[in-house]
Structures are given as structure tokens and as C-alpha cells.
Amino acid sequence: MSRHLDIDVAIIGGGLVGSSAALALRGMGFSVALLDKGYCGAQASGVNYGGVRRQGRPVEQLPLSQRAHAVWPRLKAQIGIDGEFLRSGHLKLARSEADMATLEAYKRSVEGHGLDLELIGHNGLRERFGWIGGDILGASFCAGDGHANPRLVSTGFAAAARRAGVHVLESTPVQGVTRNGSGFALEAGDGLSLKARYVINSAGAWAGAFAEAFGEAAPISRIYPSMVVTEPLDPVISVNIGMEGGGIYARQVERGNCVVGGERGLPLDDPDFSRPRGDGALAIMNHAAELFPGLRHAHAIRFWTGTEAATPDKNPVIGPSLTTPGLFHAFGFTGAGFQIAPGVGEVLAELVRDGATSTPIEAFSIGRFGNPTSARTHPGSGAGQNSEPQQAGEFNS
């Protein structure tokens, strides 16, 4: 049965960025449809590590990160749940003099951005965080950062958007988007057509196809971050942990489970999906046990992976299309979108309403990747599933 929706804004992709934008837009009085080919929050937004950190982000992301930082303590008022948000602090460890020098340089570079970083030497680290083992030289501590449950937060924003009156349309792949007069025509799901004044492309790892359909190629690739969770344990880790230069990250939730990451999963034949590697899960736990002796005899009870879009410069694409009025992009968060996503949603809502935002986003323009390509008729695979599936790397340039 065919049906039609006439709305102000159509949002492609029901992850945390799309659902937070939908909620913000509805609060401004816009009529909104949020479309996802699967379930809202089922991809990167709901299966990530759950770190809510500003520390370690590129300087150009910090105004946006600070904006999002103000949202997290207000989650219960905004979406009805706190999402298990805990302002535990984020501790970034240094394994060498070079790593420590990098942390010192980063502290200098972000002065004035409100992170209030504290450098901690070897002795101070042992006094304050005696549960850390291994050969760690020092650390940088950001007391205001923390962690949350991505599964609860991502679905919580979508549920709040639905309660606010957003048309939340799951299992509804977008099959085509065209510019139509002063707005857009979309075909989705089984016989659904939509007319919208604005479109937001927040389709995650599938967003590049939609951008390319409007003549804007973005060189995104796919990554598959992999996590392990342990059985509930006595207190082992009191803060959100990261490592300078990468390698491992870990946190412990209030009920005692430890979530540990640092490896990548393997894509399946259908690159929309992936699976954890057994040797990767073992490596994660072995590394964690070296750093945190309290995990040496812990049982891993579950491990998983998800699909995320990555950009070459590790900065997302956020902002208006440079080829098509009324189209806005927000994708390519490269495994670090969870904390900033609620701020991105607010920014997108401002762009739709005002044509501008109070938060600097120039560094995230899709134009930084070069000249627009020739537009295509259909958006391609993933969230806008075509009848002819595309390969994962086809849209890289």
C-alpha cells in the first residue's frame, strides 16, 4: 500500500546524530521524519565503546565537543533517562617519554578551551590510581569527562523524538532522493513517498553514497571497532581510560562489568556487517590484564563489533551541501562521534532553522575533499539501499 508524508525535514539515518537532530528540530516546531534502513541506534551509535570524552580530540572539534559536554548532564530531562552517564574523568596514559611529551604539547594547545587538563607523573599516578599496572610513565587527566551506555543513549534519543511527534520510520531504507523544486522527493521502504523542504544525510557508513548522489564525493572508508565486556567485578577501574597513541581503552560500569576495546573486527561478505576476531578479543583482554591486574582472572562474557565511517583526516563531515540548497551532511565520525553527537544534532537544527550556527564547523566542510563530482541519479547502498548493491569501497575517492 502506498502512502505519502509531507514534512519539513527528512533525516536519513537513525543513529545518535540523526535522532538528536530530529528531537532538536521538533522542539523548534518543524515536522520531521527520521528514516533508518534497520533500527535506530543499531549501528555505530549503539555498539561503540561509550566514552564521553573531550580530551584527545583535535582542537577544531573542541567548540563542538564543549557544546555537547553541556548536554550530557541533562539527559534525563531531555530524553527521560540518564543513559548511565557517569562523569568519572578520563585518564590518558603515556607509555614513554615521547608519549608524555605529546600529552604536554596537547595540554598547551587546548588552553582556553575549558578542558582543565592535569598532567600526572609516575609517582602521582601510583598514589591516585594504584590499580594501574604495567610500565606507565605518566598521564593526562580530564576530570569533567566520563562514559555512558551507548545502547541506552542512542535508542533513548530516538524514543524521545517519537514521543515529541517525529515520524520515526525504522526498517525503511531510502531508495531514492531527488531535488524537486524548492525541496526534495524521497522514496523509501515499501511504497512510502515523502516530500521535504530539507534533508539531513546522517547515514553513517552509508552516507557517502547520498553525498555522491548530489555531486559531493567524500573519501570515507569503513572501520569495525571491536569491544569486550567482562562479568561483573569488584571495583577495578575508577575512570575512563585511554592510551596515548592508541592500543587500548577501558571503563567499568556501576554494576561492575568492564568494557574494553582497542581491536578491529572483520567485515563479512556483506560489508554492512562484521564479526569480532577471536584473536583480537584475546589480545584485548591480555593487554587489559597487563595494565589492570584486577582483570587478570576476569571472564569475558560477550564481545561485539560495529560498522563506522572514517575519514582520512579523522574529522567528521558536518555542514551544508555545497551543491544542493537544503541538504545537510553529518557523517564520518571515525569512531569518536558518541560524545559530540548531541551537539551535532543541535548544530544541524540551527542550520535548518537559521542557515547558520553559533558553533564553528568550517573545518568539517565536505568541500575540504576537493571539487564536487558529477551528480548521480540514485544514492547507492546502505541506508539508501539501491536495487543494485554497491561494494564497500566503491564510494572512496
Rank of each mutant, 00 (worst) to 15 (best):
A298K: 01
V259P: 07
I366E: 07
A310G: 04
T323N: 14
A349N: 01
I361F: 03
Q252I: 05
F303P: 01
P312D: 12
G256K: 13
V259D: 01
F273W: 14
V317E: 04
A330G: 09
R296V: 00
I318W: 02
D354F: 12
G370T: 15
G380P: 07
P320S: 14
V259L: 10
G355H: 13
A310E: 05
H297W: 14
R275Q: 14
K314N: 10
L322D: 09
F303C: 10
L327N: 13
E350D: 09
P293M: 00
A283I: 10
R376W: 15
A283Y: 09
V344R: 05
R275W: 06
E346C: 05
S321T: 12
N315F: 09
G278I: 13
T377P: 03
C258R: 01
E263T: 11
L348T: 05
F369N: 08
M285C: 04
P276L: 00
G343Y: 07
G280W: 11
F331I: 01
R376F: 11
D279E: 15
L291K: 08
I301Q: 03
G343P: 05
R302I: 13
A309S: 07
G306H: 07
A289M: 06
I318V: 14
G355I: 13
A310P: 01
T311G: 00
F303V: 09
F303G: 03
P293G: 00
G319H: 08
N371T: 15
D313S: 07
D354P: 07
I361E: 01
F303E: 08
L327C: 13
A289S: 13
H297F: 15
V344M: 08
M285N: 00
A289L: 02
E290V: 09
P271E: 12
A283H: 11
A281K: 03
P293T: 02
H297S: 14
S374N: 11
I284K: 05
H329K: 08
T359V: 10
E290L: 06
V344W: 06
N371C: 13
R296S: 00
N315K: 08
T311C: 07
H287A: 09
Q252T: 04
A375Y: 07
N257E: 15
V260N: 01
I301M: 10
N257F: 13
E362D: 14
P271Q: 14
P293H: 03
R353Q: 15
I318E: 01
E254V: 12
P320Y: 03
H329M: 11
P276Q: 02
P342L: 10
T311Y: 03
G355A: 12
G278K: 04
G306M: 06
V352P: 06
G335D: 13
A281L: 04
V259M: 05
R376N: 12
R296W: 01
L291R: 06
H287M: 10
T357N: 08
G380C: 05
E308H: 06
F364A: 09
G262W: 06
F331E: 00
A288V: 03
F328H: 15
V347R: 02
K314C: 04
Q252M: 07
